[in-house]
Amino acid sequence: MASLIDLANPTRFMRYSAVLLPWLAGLSAVSLVVGFYLAWFVAPADYQQGETIRIMFVHVPAAWLAMMFYTMMTLSSLGTLVWRHPLADVAQKTAAPIGAAFALICLLTGAFWGKPMWGTYWVWDARLTSMLVLLLIYLGIMALWRTLDEPSQAGRAVAILTLVGFVNVPIIKFSVDWWNTLHQPASVLRLDGPTIHASMLWPLLILAVGFTLMALVLHLVSMRAEIMRRRVRTLTILEAERLDRLAAEGAPA
């Protein structure tokens, strides 16, 4: 626990993250290269879906990361509201664009996978629709960050929104399931049918690790940028105040 509290200090965070980043980036690059090699040259084409199964290797990690980043944002929001952790809202703010990007990737690759397999780019399937709503929530969170200027106040407001969204996500999933069974006979080819073969599972797992590491690297880098942005902001305000004071002293009215 002591080490966690130490990490809470932004200066320490900057130091440790600078040491950690090259290693994480390297590890991520290696696993991505190995994973893509296996996925493209070693893994066989699926007997049912043919070569389009190659899309799965980015589609599934993207879906997993989109959900993982939202969970992480929820934990950070708790950190902001309950423990007033100084890094929590930095983590929350910088996670949103990354999570949104992976949700977008998941939707785009899903569309390009769906066209040859289902015959259409988009179906209002429960999973696709839930991911779309998740993307909308991400965009709303990013929009709220942009409209509130003062970082600490914005952090608390967005934390509340994130928590409400987190409560809502299972409800949305449930209602979309209900809505979907109501409207659509289950004619869609289900992807969870065939069990996955080891020659595909390994590249998928390695790529999932690679993408996760890459997302973490991006998250750490943007957290560093955000910490510096706040420092710049604080320093600029202090400097402006100092200049104001000097001006007031130099030229008394």
Binding site: T52, I55, V58, L108, T109, F112, W113, P116
Partner: peptide, 9 residues
Amino acid sequence: FILASYAAV
């Protein structure tokens, strides 16, 4: 479609 999805990524 495969190339398009990788391009999108």
